[in-house]
Amino acid sequence: MGFKLLSKLLVYLTASIMAIASPLAFSVDSSGEYPTVSEIPVGEVRLYQIADGVWSHIATQSFDGAVYPSNGLIVRDGDELLLIDTAWGAKNTAALLAEIEKQIGLPVTRAVSTHFHDDRVGGVDVLRAAGVATYASPSTRRLAEVEGNEIPTHSLEGLSSSGDAVRFGPVELFYPGAAHSTDNLIVYVPSASVLYGGCAIYELSRTSAGNVADADLAEWPTSIERIQQHYPEAQFVIPGHGLPGGLDLLKHTTNVVKAHTNRSVVE
């Protein structure tokens, strides 16, 4: 069995187990497998329904001669939608809004960016022009300005110390501490036991640490421990890039980060 097929099978099995364990909360999309990078042309966006009122959005972007996937989250909030992270750029984010209108038909009224990198804030200006209120932590807003990236308009308070959590509509926002970046936030959907790890969490097929220019490698494993301790009931975990899975993604990420750190020390 090929690795790609095995990865998709694991996603399907995880979703099936969740649907059985929580039949009222989960209505997993039966329309197909989780979209992969090879299936999404740059400039297009796919939506994948995880649970009743919960979707991931998947886009792709060219970077350094390669094409990478990027995940975000959409959560229903009454007759409105909360968006977590842009679709990595203005063109993708405009396509995301169009796809949401086509498939869901509810307005996106608020959006949260989970850290300051372009795959999370690139497209904020498109959201703002569409009347979406954009939010991020003060740290993310400051770092985005320093980096020359787009800056969300509103500040999220109460997320300055490791372990801080605040309720934001249908989700809980959690600051686990520094990891992929010093400002990275985690998003949890309690009604569906869905954990969105953003770039602080890796997919299972990833074996290298990737972009760690703004990471705190020493603190990252401790931050992941905080996530595990705060959300032990999480059933569906979405990484910032690639295929979702279960809580095993947290341990896998820790292993990859520690291996990278150990290699760096040896070198």
Score class of each variant (00 low, 15 high):
residue 156 L to K: 04
residue 130 A to E: 10
residue 234 A to R: 02
residue 56 S to A: 15
residue 23 P to G: 10
residue 4 K to M: 10
residue 52 D to I: 10
residue 134 T to Y: 00
residue 199 C to M: 03
residue 167 R to F: 11
residue 200 A to R: 03
residue 44 E to H: 11
residue 210 G to W: 04
residue 91 K to A: 15
residue 22 S to I: 11
residue 170 P to L: 05
residue 264 S to V: 12
residue 189 V to W: 00
residue 149 N to Y: 11
residue 216 D to K: 08
residue 3 F to Y: 10
residue 164 D to Q: 12
residue 245 G to D: 05
residue 43 G to P: 03
residue 82 L to K: 00
residue 4 K to N: 14
residue 82 L to F: 06
residue 79 D to N: 11
residue 251 K to H: 12
residue 44 E to I: 08
residue 3 F to H: 07
residue 173 L to T: 02
residue 246 G to N: 14
residue 54 V to Y: 00
residue 227 I to E: 02
residue 38 S to H: 12
residue 134 T to G: 01
residue 177 G to H: 02
residue 106 L to E: 03
residue 247 L to Q: 11
residue 246 G to D: 13
residue 267 E to D: 13
residue 125 D to M: 08
residue 119 D to T: 01
residue 124 V to W: 03
residue 255 N to W: 10
residue 119 D to C: 01
residue 156 L to V: 09
residue 197 G to C: 07
residue 208 S to A: 12
residue 170 P to K: 05
residue 141 R to C: 06
residue 161 S to F: 13
residue 131 G to Y: 03
residue 186 I to E: 01
residue 135 Y to V: 01
residue 166 V to P: 04
residue 23 P to W: 12
residue 8 K to I: 13
residue 100 I to N: 01
residue 148 G to E: 07
residue 94 A to N: 13
residue 39 E to I: 11
residue 182 T to I: 11
residue 158 G to V: 04
residue 168 F to R: 02
residue 22 S to K: 14
residue 6 L to T: 09
residue 241 H to I: 02
residue 198 G to W: 06
residue 204 L to C: 05
residue 263 R to H: 11
residue 246 G to F: 04
residue 123 G to Q: 05
residue 82 L to M: 10
residue 162 S to Q: 12
residue 107 P to L: 07
residue 166 V to A: 08
residue 83 L to T: 00
residue 174 F to N: 01
residue 25 A to P: 14
residue 130 A to Y: 14
residue 27 S to W: 12
residue 120 R to I: 00
residue 50 I to V: 12
residue 207 T to E: 15
residue 107 P to E: 09
residue 204 L to G: 12
residue 28 V to C: 07
residue 115 H to V: 00
residue 238 I to T: 05
residue 253 T to P: 01
residue 40 I to T: 11
residue 257 V to A: 05
residue 235 Q to E: 12
residue 188 Y to S: 02
residue 209 A to E: 07
residue 230 H to M: 14
residue 66 A to P: 07
residue 32 G to D: 10
residue 20 I to P: 07
residue 195 L to Q: 00
residue 198 G to E: 04
residue 90 A to V: 08
residue 49 Q to P: 14
residue 230 H to P: 06
residue 198 G to L: 04
residue 169 G to Q: 03
residue 40 I to D: 06
residue 233 E to R: 13
residue 4 K to L: 05
residue 74 I to G: 02
residue 164 D to N: 13
residue 150 E to A: 05
residue 15 A to D: 10
residue 81 L to G: 01
residue 235 Q to T: 13
residue 49 Q to E: 12
residue 75 V to T: 04
residue 145 E to Y: 14
residue 65 G to P: 04
residue 6 L to V: 14
residue 104 I to N: 04
residue 186 I to D: 00
residue 23 P to H: 11
residue 176 P to K: 01
residue 146 V to T: 14
residue 265 V to D: 13
residue 53 G to N: 11
residue 179 A to Q: 00
residue 10 L to H: 15
residue 12 Y to T: 12
residue 64 D to S: 13
